[in-house]
């Protein structure tokens, strides 16, 4: 087992991790604002088809990524109107968004089935991007670097900026934030749109990078893993990054174990691991009592001010 082997395996892990990291990061911000959006899968699919379609028309993957962000954000705004303006149940509306996004993306994708685009790979020169060792650093799609940069940026935003503080306040105690003059609804609109855009970019990683094509339901449930990831991470960005790579390594391990002929654990066990680990993490968090209970206090509750 040489160094090449390990590098190739790491590149596979990065590919498996990046979409759930992006979608998870977006959902983390949404949940920090007190909104639970279970529509991640639908938004990822909307991003996947939007990004692919824009790339087909413009021949420019950078516009494609913007299109994916717009597609995901537009889908999420539909959810936002329902839960923020009409106070509909967030769980039911989120699930509806997944179903809606799946259906609408299939409809939009009808005329794109069977087409391909040039994969949106590394923009570094081949001497770096295809170098035997340096590809470990330079061999990725720009979306991978974007995802990695967004982790510290989101941390900084939530922890050190005034806007981030307001967002967290809205998520922890919406009535108090409202009473001192912050617009809970506007903050949540922005958070939901951000979550949608990030899920959309995560989705287009499938349709523009890994397998540069469009196919119905091509995200194949990664949105649900992203949702589990946010809980697994205890709503902390650093842990979200670690958790995303942990999940990515688990997914790659399953494949490597199978391809190497190991059968010490049934494959269903591997497939269930991300969810099983989330349950373990949740139990661990709640067993530490209130000190570890990191969930935003207003998560999933409608905002109903008396005035």
């Amino acid at each position: 087992m040489g160094i090449d082997f390990i590098i190739a395996a790491i590149i596979t892990v990065v590919g498996l991790t990046t979409p759930i990291l992006l979608a998870g990061l977006g959902e983390l911000v949404v949940e920090k604002s007190g909104v639970l959006n279970l529509g991640v899968e639908g938004m990822m699919l909307m991003g996947a088809i939007s990004g692919f379609a824009v790339t087909v028309f413009t021949f420019n993957p950078w516009f494609g990524v913007l299109g994916a962000a717009a597609g995901g954000a537009l889908a999420s705004l539909l959810f936002a109107v329902l839960v923020l303006q009409l106070n509909s149940n967030q769980v039911a509306t989120g699930l509806a968004l997944t179903i809606f996004g799946t259906g609408l993306s299939s409809l939009m994708g009808l005329s794109f089935t069977g087409r391909i685009v040039v994969p949106f790979l590394s923009v570094f020169p081949d001497s770096l991007a295809k170098h035997e060792y340096l590809q470990l650093i330079f061999g990725y799609s720009p979306i991978v670097y974007f995802a990695l940069i967004m982790v510290p940026l989101t941390t900084w935003f939530l922890k050190s900026t005034r806007a981030g503080l307001i967002l967290r306040a809205v998520g922890e105690n919406d009535l108090s934030a409202h009473s001192i003059g912050y617009s809970v609804i506007k903050v949540r609109y922005a958070a939901i749109a951000f979550g949608g855009a990030m899920a959309g970019i995560g989705g287009c990683y499938f349709s523009m990078v890994i397998t540069p094509m469009w196919a119905e339901k091509m995200t194949a449930g990664r949105g649900w893993i992203a949702l589990a990831l946010v809980v697994f991470a205890g709503w902390r960005t650093g842990r979200l990054l670690a958790g995303a790579y942990f999940f990515g390594i688990l997914m790659a391990l399953e494949l490597y174990a199978k391809a190497s002929g190991f059968s010490f654990l049934p494959s269903q066990f591997w497939a269930a691991m991300p969810y099983a680990m989330t349950v373990v993490a949740l139990s661990f968090i709640s067993s530490r009592g209130t000190a570890g209970a990191n969930a935003p206090a207003c998560l999933g509750k409608p905002f109903l001010p008396s005035t």
Binding site: A8, G15, T211
Partner: peptide, 25 residues
């Protein structure tokens, strides 16, 4: 013949990752 069964008929990202794995092996 190295065999990987991915427990799905259709999962493009997993199919892609499994293909990379087989190539690496």
């Amino acid at each position: 013949v190295k065999l990987v069964l991915i427990d799905s008929w259709f999962d493009p990202p997993k199919e892609a990752a499994a293909t990379e794995t087989l190539i690496n092996l």
